[in-house]
Design a protein around this nucleic acid. Structure first.
Length: 611
RNA sequence: GCGCUCGUAGCUCAGUUGGAUAGAGCAGUGGACUUCUAAUCCACCGGUCGCAGGUUCGAGUCCUGCCGGGCGCACCA
């Protein structure tokens, strides 16, 4: 949910508690991470097949390479190419196979069915590629050669209002976005679009004065934001005099009255302090430097309106100043506006979003802006993007996207609420996750020390919540189910964390470290072969996820990797094997652990070494 | 009314530019611990892919029309 903002007055000081360092990202750029670009298995196969297709088919053709149940990979491109050229698909496939240089990569290349090309990767190729990946500190994924500046707009709680499950998804998905893009070497601006401005602040400030500054600070700092807000609201609804005071207070706030601003800052600061405690417990990267609330854009609102006017985009409709982005109609089929300035002179939230997008493209020089906001806001963002394009504030050189997500449902299939029917405080949700995880850990591994158990419980509990959220297609609603997300079986965070802990345990138990400097990692067994293919797929998956921000594709991959590992673990003794086989298996273990650890880290989940 | 979004096994979900017999997990049933963590693994059972047409060698995927759930449609954000 987008935070609440209603009105704004003529002049306003810039928020004092933070200084936007305009050149914070300008100089230096990202650290170069000393990586050599590597070719992935899939890229290699694709390149060879593409060359073969070019030799066989006029104008060439996409090999349509993918993983297969019938072999390691299959290339289906011959069918489409044959149809286009009105040729026999099996013959095209045969010619492609004849022309393809695959000797160094494939054990077998066979044609099957109507013209599928089935590829089995040779052990030698797997060994070489695995060794390359293992020797690489970034697991085969180089840092971006041309880093982008990416603004991630997420979390966005409201001052003096409790964070609830609605903020959970934005925070978790946003954090995964930040981690993934930062790891890839991009300049990421974390923009926590705090709801820190608007009419409610009249009543909130009056309530603060009623109960006294000290009491208010106390109430807010312990996280009783709902209590504070409700009390203010109740008075506002019941007491006419209080209403009047609140209205005057809003005017004073908007007018820049110094004392009023001091109270407002206090509300904001106390709320931010509280939000930080929640973020810290959740283990997300947001800091107190990342609050860029709506008030941050206040100075930019009048200029936005003026610019729209100059650009002839501004229209007057029913006394309000509006822009009509093309292609949007209301229920009567009339053009649907974005209200940039209301009849009474106040600004709408659309104005703030326009100001923010202009700021982000023109001042921050963003190459990409990701709005991690709920699906219901979809039309709003389409309108904002459309208007911003018309104004020239959003050009083809910036990718603006609404990273939409669905609702969190209870096991009854309805929007998740507490038993009493209230919204659930995010802080309570975190507490419950940790206490449930603590109980599970205590039961399943009593040998852990108390301190270690607490640490593991926190990582498991938080991991479970995040993983449950990220492992579903984000655009869909998902069902929040404690039992399922904390299960050690199935596609869950604890399962992956456990797989990782088991691997670390091998090295502890064997008192060995991962072999280094291998030029090849021989794979012989079926389970080793399958694990190798999974490991080598990591770079491609990360690339897709960075592009689509579909994190369930990463969780899906990690689960497949962990499954492949446990099969290997059951069938291929590591410490009991000897010589080259032992070295190879230790290297596979190490590589799996590193990929699991890194993959989970991109999701904001920590994998403990033991649990 | 217009628009967006979802509908796949009893449950929770994958399914990438259209490709081979639609895949997992949970639950259920049956197996496997002198063993590097059994917090695991293996096997079986389970689906008219909401419905009906269409496009073609081939449709869960693309097109059209329905049905059902959720959401949005100007001065709250």
């Amino acid at each position: 949910m987008r935070p609440t903002t209603t009105r704004c007055s003529r002049t306003r000081p810039r928020p004092w508690w933070r200084v936007w360092a305009g050149n914070r990202f300008g100089a230096g750029g990202p650290r170069r991470l000393g990586c050599t670009p590597m070719e992935t298995l899939e890229e290699l196969l694709n390149a060879r097949l593409t060359a073969a297709f070019a030799a066989v088919v006029d104008g060439g053709a996409d090999p349509v390479l993918r993983r297969s149940q019938h072999a390691d990979f299959q290339a289906d491109g011959a069918l489409a190419a044959a149809r286009k050229a009105k040729r026999n698909p099996r013959e095209v496939a045969a010619l492609v196979v004849e022309h393809a240089r695959l000797d160094d990569l494939c054990e077998t290349v066979e044609i099957s069915g109507p013209g599928f090309i089935n590829l089995t990767v040779s052990a030698g190729a797997l060994g070489r590629l695995l060794a390359g990946m293992s020797a690489h500190d970034r697991l085969g994924i180089p840092a971006a050669v041309t880093p982008q500046t990416v603004v991630v707009d997420y979390s966005a709680p409201n001052v003096a209002k409790e964070m609830h499950v609605g903020h959970l998804r934005s925070t978790v998905i946003g954090d995964a976005t930040v981690r993934t893009l930062e790891w890839l070497g991009h300049n990421v601006v974390k923009a926590n679009h705090l709801g820190d401005w608007g009419t409610p602040f009249g009543m909130l400030i009056e309530h603060l004065l009623d109960i006294g500054e000290a009491n208010a600070a106390e109430e807010l700092s312990v996280g009783d934001l709902n209590g504070f807000y409700r009390a203010a609201r109740a008075k506002f609804d019941a007491d006419e005099a209080f209403q009047e005071r609140s209205r005057r207070r809003v005017v004073a706030l908007q007018g820049g009255d110094e004392e009023t601003l001091r109270f407002w800052r206090m509300l904001v600061a106390e709320s931010e302090r509280y939000f930080m405690t929640v973020y810290d417990r959740l283990g997300v990267r947001l800091t107190d430097k990342d609050f860029f609330g709506e008030s941050f854009y206040n100075d930019m609102l009048h200029p936005v309106v003026a610019s729209l006017d100059e650009l002839k985009l501004l229209k007057i409709s029913d006394g309000a100043r509006v822009v009509f982005p093309e292609g949007f109609v209301n229920r009567d089929g009339e053009p649907l506006p974005i209200i940039v300035q209301k009849r009474d002179g106040g600004f709408g939230y659309g104005t703030t979003d326009l100001a923010a997008i202009r700021y982000r493209t023109q001042e921050l020089h963003a190459d990409r802006i990701a709005y991690v906001v709920g699906l219901p806001q979809k039309q709003h963002f389409e309108m904002i993007f459309s208007a911003a394009r018309s104004a020239g504030w959003l050009t083809a050189s910036t990718r603006a996207e609404h990273v939409a997500f669905g609702s969190v449902l209870g096991t009854d299939g309805k929007i998740l609420r507490s038993r009493a029917g209230d919204t659930i405080k995010l802080a309570d949700l975190v507490d419950e996750a940790i206490s449930r995880a603590a109980a599970a850990v205590a039961e399943k591994n009593p040998a852990l020390s108390e301190a270690e158990r607490d640490r593991v419980a926190r990582l498991v509990g938080i991991g479970a919540i995040k993983y449950a959220d990220l492992s579903n297609d984000r655009v869909k609603d998902y069902v929040f189910d404690w039992q399922r997300m904390l299960s050690f079986d199935g596609n869950t965070a604890p399962y992956l964390q456990y797989a990782h802990a088991r691997i670390r345990s091998i090295f502890r138990r064997g008192a060995v470290s991962a072999p280094a400097g291998l030029t090849t990692i021989p794979v012989a067994e079926k389970a080793e072969h399958a694990l190798a293919l999974e490991l080598l797929a990591f770079p491609a998956v990360v690339a897709v996820v960075a592009d689509t921000l579909d994190f369930h594709k990463l969780t899906h991959y990690l689960f497949g990797l962990a499954s492949a590992f446990t099969t290997f673990y059951e069938q291929c003794p590591v410490l009991k094997s000897e010589g080259e086989v032992r070295e190879s298996r230790l290297a596979l273990c190490d590589l799996t652990a590193r990929v699991l650890c890194q993959g989970l880290d991109l999701l904001g989940i920590t994998a403990p070494d033991q649990m």
